[in-house]
Amino acid sequence: MIRNGFLLLLLLVLFSVFYFSLQDLLEFQKTSASYFLEYGLDETGSSNLVTSILLDYRLFDSLFEAGILLIAVSGIIWISKHEIEEKNAEFMIDKFKTPDLFVTFSRLVYPLMLAFGFYIIINGHVSPGGGFQGGAIVATAILILYYIDAEKETNIKLIVTIEKYLYLTILVIASLSFFTRGTFFTNIFDPGTFDTGTQSIYLIVLNVLVGFKVALGLWTIFTAFLKEGR
């Protein structure tokens, strides 16, 4: 009980520290928004400013984020790997008999979800969305496949190999700007000579690649979890 009271006191102290430092934190919001609003579209060709930051201004960050995703996936596979082959690695889901109604609706919803995911990925530069979010939606759509067909077999090794090559492709495409503009990790089309329509080609290509990479990564994660059986 004393320990609990001490803990609550500590949290109270933290809260008051936060309360007094709040004024400084509120300064934070006056920094960058107006700059992005004024120059964002012209410099990157993306009306969605979040995408313009993810794929242009701070592309370096996003690349490392994708790299961390790859590392986490490899870690999960490494932890869950078994040296002795297990033949009857049953899937978790087929223990509960999936109701027929659910299967039918999953069949109806699956293509719609996949289409919605691709829509989010491809329109990432003009509307809310982009590679990361669209990839997550595509991965959720693939998850529905396991409800429709519980016996589905997935080759994790192949997926991870594709993911690695996709990551390399993203790196190469992101560095191409060195040859066209002289700087790494930015749009390959110079905003001075090309209009925003041409610039968006680069954004779409990078969004699609990132989207597929994230989708494959999340797919691997939940396949590893579903396989974690006998």
């Binding site: 992005f36 979040v50 986490a72 999960i76 869950s80 997550a136 994660i221 974690e228």
Partner: peptide, 26 residues
Amino acid sequence: IADPLPQALMITTIVIGSTVTALALM
């Protein structure tokens, strides 16, 4: 407009956070 910079950072946080949760649970 709302500042897009923290939003861009937070999108990466969500994706990373989910994978880290998965790693911890495994």
